[in-house]
Design a protein around this nucleic acid. Structure first.
Lengths: 339, 339
DNA sequence: CTGTTAGCGCTTTCAA
DNA sequence: TTGAAAGCGCTAACAG
């Protein structure tokens, strides 16, 4: 027997006793009051208020088939404002549908993702929304493992997994951003991005590559750096690139973290009065104060919150019966903002 | 009867049947295997794997006194990177304690906060962590309403509510930041911040005020703007201030949103070649690329993630027995980073 | 070491 | 319009 902290939560029984009715009448009243005399309803509600009663949602959803009202959400990095906005979008739509989200951070760790998914299922979530980690297999996401719990992937796809997915137009955005630089006369354009095992990293590189090839601009591996996940690494990569004898005259940055790194390095060189080019920059992902940068910055902008909303919308359409439909992919557009 | 989607989740009974044991033996095996023969355990685990069984956590925690393993977290604005980091800190510590978080966004809406808290309690959360909204009374947070569910407040206090709280050293940080400007010779220092009903807004103003008074610098209401919650409003306020016949020579910004607004406006004026002062800025809250700004920026920095970790730590100390203790307040230090 | 019984809080089903 | 019975998945308590 453990020490009880203060008063235990009252149960439906206690409310019933207090209102002088049976638990069933309380249950019916709380469910909307169909077939309960109005005066009885009032007595019940009074008892509810007096006791500070909250219906136990876990007990309620114990019966199989009954929804738990929970959506499991796993993202890779909550510290990234992008994913904060994403989570917000999911939360908003979930709330509109009377659901709550359980949130877990994977930190790009496959094992952690596995663990989170098990836990979510154990908590009887009605659905799952995942920004999948890039590594590892996807055994734990296969339909037979998930039972009847629908899954929506966001931002990234998992190879060999045919499920509803929400993506950005990574390829198209990167293509158009790169073309903007080419049109401005640049031909020696550096690339800063994620390793190719990251789904978006690969796609954005493809867009860059296609634009370069189509315009007959050579891609020099010396100015392609594809392994930066954080600002520090990005700064280093930009430095190495700009220190070359033949530095790029423009830089395509495939994400927010790399853009910040590039700006840091470019800013440092200008403050220190170092010679060399002042590269124009295209950034996939917006960042604040981009208009105050010492070089012109073109932004490939998009709405993470909308991505979250879209993922949740896809999920709820499954929960409302579109079970048999084939897996869908929604690709959200991006907008190019010139300096 | 609703249509069943694919296979229902298997139950402990089915695992038991498949392994040729009773449900209790499965339960014991899953609980660590005390008093179960190793070979039987293996049979059970095999059945678990084959059926893709996940223990139903909701059913498990149905028994009163049993923890649900859920922590309810309500914050005011997930889109703000500050709160994203905060949530991450909470999530990390919760995960370390084998708990999950249910996350809700209040959007500074009192009614929404109320609703979230009810829902959290209905889901039998083991504890609550809240960044309280500034408006409204706090009836729904009183101990008698919460029963035995411990509550920790973060970032802000609620008047008249004596509970565990984690704060920043708002007053001290604002004081020291302002002193840095005074020491640099400024005496006409503008203030950009939140309305005084926002707890941190009030505290940071107090720090500014104290520094000014102690140094005999007058506070001119014309250069004190205390009603900006977003960047657009902050930009406008900064513009009004700098358009004055006697503009400030320095600006104290009480938060990230106001700092960004101030920088936008200052940047615009310099790009447009407008005359007038180039005010030095002190920013409570860090922002990225502050070192690239066209005027020197002093940052009063702190760690939202740590704030989240601290809040969770406080909560878990309650959950582990420190029930009788009086309410505690932890005030986290801030650091001043000179340009 | 293993199984049976009972019951957590709630709601579906059936009966009054 | 109301209530009694039964059972959801699981485990504490008590046999054996």
């Amino acid at each position: 027997m453990s020490i009880s902290r203060g008063a235990r939560q009252p149960t439906i029984k206690e409310v019933a006793t207090r209102a002088g009715v049976s638990p069933m009448t309380v249950s019916r009243t709380l469910a909307g009051g169909r077939n309960v005399r109005p005066d009885v309803q009032e007595r019940v509600m009074a008892a509810v208020r007096e006791l500070g009663y909250y219906r136990n949602e876990n007990a309620r959803s114990l019966r199989p088939g009954q929804p738990s009202g929970l959506i499991g959400v796993a993202i890779t990095n909550l510290a990234n404002p992008y994913y904060g906005n994403f989570a917000l979008g999911v939360e908003e739509v979930a709330a509109e549908h009377g659901r709550r989200i359980i949130l877990g951070n994977t930190g790009e760790d496959d094992a952690r993702e596995r663990q989170l998914v098990s836990d979510f299922i154990g908590r009887q979530v009605d659905g799952l929304i995942l920004v999948p980690t890039s590594g590892g297999d996807a055994e734990h996401l296969r339909p037979e493992r998930l039972g009847e719990v629908p899954l929506v992937l966001a931002s990234r796809r998992v190879p060999g997994l045919e499920v509803d997915t929400v993506l950005l137009d990574d390829v198209g955005g990167a293509y158009r951003g790169t073309v903007a630089l080419l049109d401005a006369g640049h031909t020696r354009i550096g690339f800063l991005g994620n390793r190719s095992s990251v789904f978006t990293g690969e796609r954005r590189y493809r867009g860059y590559e296609r634009a370069m090839l189509e315009h007959g601009a050579p891609i020099d591996p010396a100015i392609v750096a594809r392994d930066q996940q954080d600002v520090t690494a990005a700064t280093r990569a930009a430095r190495a690139m700009l220190d070359l004898a033949e530095p790029p005259t423009a830089i395509f940055s495939a994400n927010n973290r790399n853009s910040i790194g590039a700006m840091r390095e470019i800013g440092r060189r200008m403050r220190d009065g170092l010679p060399g080019p002042r590269p124009a920059v295209v950034s996939f992902d917006d960042f604040e104060l981009s208009e105050l940068m010492p070089v012109p910055v073109t932004v490939i902008d998009h709405d993470a919150r909308l991505l979250g909303r879209e993922a949740a919308t896809l999920l709820f359409s499954r929960l409302d019966g579109e079970t048999a439909e084939a897996a869908r992919t929604v690709e959200l557009p991006v907008t190019i903002e010139y300096p």
